[in-house]
């Protein structure tokens, strides 16, 4: 029994008939064609699928698309505005906060929430708040630096 689902992703409305079991991440990747949101685990540990749903960072592999009916969603593709990178994107580039790039979209979406909730976090707070995002390449050092740098640049704006 398919259900019609409509949601706004990065300002664009998407409407599709889906099986209720379709995960939100598959709606985003397969139906909206936004493949920046990744699937890295089955169990909501890795955070590669992190998006923003109605103002909250969530793991889109652990939501059904039907649960997001009517939602406002931002994915990594929607973070840059008018061709200008978001300061967190800039910071990950500047501080070499990524290597293979697979965890990066989720990392950045998670970092956005960290700085939204706490614009001036300590190193320990950043590390704690990254509990839901795994990176196998960077050892987190430069990710933490990137988020600190983003906090500084965002404070200046």
């Amino acid at each position: 029994m398919k259900t019609k689902v409509t949601m706004t992703i990065n300002g664009v409305s998407y409407s599709h008939e889906v099986e209720p079991r379709m995960l939100l991440v598959h709606f985003i990747r397969e139906l909206a064609g936004l493949t920046g949101t990744h699937v890295g685990c089955d169990t909501s540990q890795c955070g590669a699928c992190t998006i923003n749903l109605n103002g909250l960072a969530v793991k889109s592999c652990t939501l059904l698309a039907v649960q997001a009916d009517g939602a406002q969603i931002t994915t990594i593709e929607g973070l840059a505005k008018d061709g200008k990178l978001h300061p967190i994107q800039e910071a990950f580039w500047e501080k070499h906060g990524l290597q293979c790039g697979f965890c990066t979209p989720g990392m950045i979406m998670s970092a956005a929430q960290i700085l939204q909730r706490n614009p001036n976090p300590s190193e320990a707070e950043i590390r704690h708040e990254l509990e839901g995002n795994l990176c196998r390449c960077t050892g987190y050092h430069n990710i933490v630096k990137a988020i600190q740098y983003a906090a500084e640049t965002m404070a200046k704006r």
């Binding site: 955070g47 909250l56 960072a57 969530v58 793991k59 652990t62 939501l63 929430q113 708040e129 839901g132």
Partner: peptide
């Protein structure tokens, strides 16, 4: 509990 994203849901 869990992590920030888990706590949001």
């Amino acid at each position: 509990i869990g992590d920030p994203m888990v706590r949001n849901m």
